[in-house]
């Protein structure tokens, strides 16, 4: 069996010789240690004893080096069987006679194919994503946020440094600042939190049919529960003033997990709201204005508010309510008119 798999590059003859050489080497090495252990044998004179010992020791060392040389020569003849195999040493697994019991080899092959494919697809995806750079990245924000307090005078007077704090590294700030012992940064952090609260409060007051509950279950980043009339509820996950994630659910659906926290992962049971969730995520990416994040939040909320007539407004294009069992779930970003997903331009 080994014959077939180990390919012609392997010299079986040399193999058996090499094994014999290893045995010889081992026995000669044993002899060296035996000789050392026995020490000087009884001879009449001290000189004779030393001579005899040294001679025996020399001889056995010689035989060791000879056997080692022989082994090295043979090992060159044997070659390296593993290199011929595409999977290197793991290819030897296929030689395992108990393959039926442990399907390790076939699993290994599959895993290998998988990881190859994954790498390929990941490469493609990263290429595509690089083409369309979304201007939400942290670094750009940090730079532009510096200018924000000047560009957008607010009722709350922010020190110019507050803009610096508005970078997404925020959540880890308390640690850093403690280590550095800088109280100023903590102060800035609280100012920023108050600023976020303030912006959200103003939006809340702006739309009477919309109620916004702000909570901070995980430290600094805020989570909003927006209830729109008696139509839907939206969970908005913020990162300072940038919206990270939204989930839309029905008015009668549960938005809390069993332990009373906002459930930001599970999606709605209804197809309508799953669709609206998709559109809301699109809207997040659409409303971009890195210099003025509060304007972004406000326009997103304005857009969201147009869903108050989710079940009442017919499609502006086909004039119907239903299409494939769904009401018009799309709202135009500028005109806020209702369209079916397939009716929009």
């Amino acid at each position: 069996m080994a014959d077939g798999v180990l390919s012609p590059g392997v010299n079986l003859e040399a193999f058996s010789q090499a094994i014999a050489a290893i045995q010889a080497l081992r026995s000669s090495v044993t002899r060296v240690f035996d000789c050392l252990k026995d020490g000087m044998r009884n001879k009449e004179t001290l000189e004779g004893r030393e001579k005899g010992f040294v001679a025996a020791f020399q001889e056995s060392l010689h035989s060791v080096s000879r056997d080692l040389g022989e082994l090295e020569r043979l090992s060159n003849l044997v070659g390296k069987p593993s290199e011929n195999h595409p999977l290197h040493n793991s290819g030897l697994l296929s030689l395992d006679p108990v393959q039926d019991k442990t399907p390790l080899y076939s699993q290994l092959l599959q895993a290998y194919k998988w990881s190859n494919k994954l790498q390929y697809h990941a490469g493609l995806a990263s290429g595509l994503l690089n083409q369309q750079s979304l201007k939400r990245s942290a670094n750009q924000m940090g730079v532009s946020a510096k200018r924000r307090p000047k560009a957008q005078p607010t009722t709350l007077v922010l020190p110019p440094q507050a803009g610096l704090v508005a970078t997404p590294e925020l959540p880890i700030l308390p640690h850093d600042s403690l280590r550095e012992g800088s109280e100023k940064r903590i102060k800035d952090l609280f100012l920023l939190l108050r600023y976020v609260d303030d912006v959200i409060n103003r939006i809340d007051r702006m739309f009477p049919e919309m109620s916004i509950q702000l909570s901070r279950p995980n430290g600094t980043s805020a989570m909003l529960l927006v209830t729109l009339g008696k139509v839907l509820k939206v969970i908005v996950v913020m990162r300072s003033l940038f919206i990270d994630r939204t989930i839309v659910k029905g008015y009668n659906e549960n938005v809390y997990t069993d332990d009373g926290k906002l459930d930001i992962w599970s999606k709605s049971n209804y197809q309508v709201f799953q669709k609206v969730t998709d559109h809301a995520t699109t809207a997040l990416l659409h409303y971009q204005l890195p210099q003025m994040p509060d304007v972004v939040v406000r326009s997103f909320m304005t857009w969201l508010r147009s869903y108050i007539k989710l079940f009442q407004a017919p499609c502006q294009r086909c004039g119907k309510f239903l299409q494939d069992g769904l009401p018009p779930t799309w709202r135009d970003f500028r005109t806020l008119e209702a369209f079916h997903d397939t009716c929009r331009q």
Binding site: K230, V231, Y251, K320, F321, L322, G325
Partner: peptide, 21 residues
């Protein structure tokens, strides 16, 4: 029954259209 909507009047037109179908 249209499950996502909790206010009957809101979705009556929508229901009508569905029933007509």
């Amino acid at each position: 029954e249209y499950c996502p909507c909790v206010i009957a009047n809101d979705c009556w037109n929508l229901l009508m259209e569905f029933m007509q179908s």
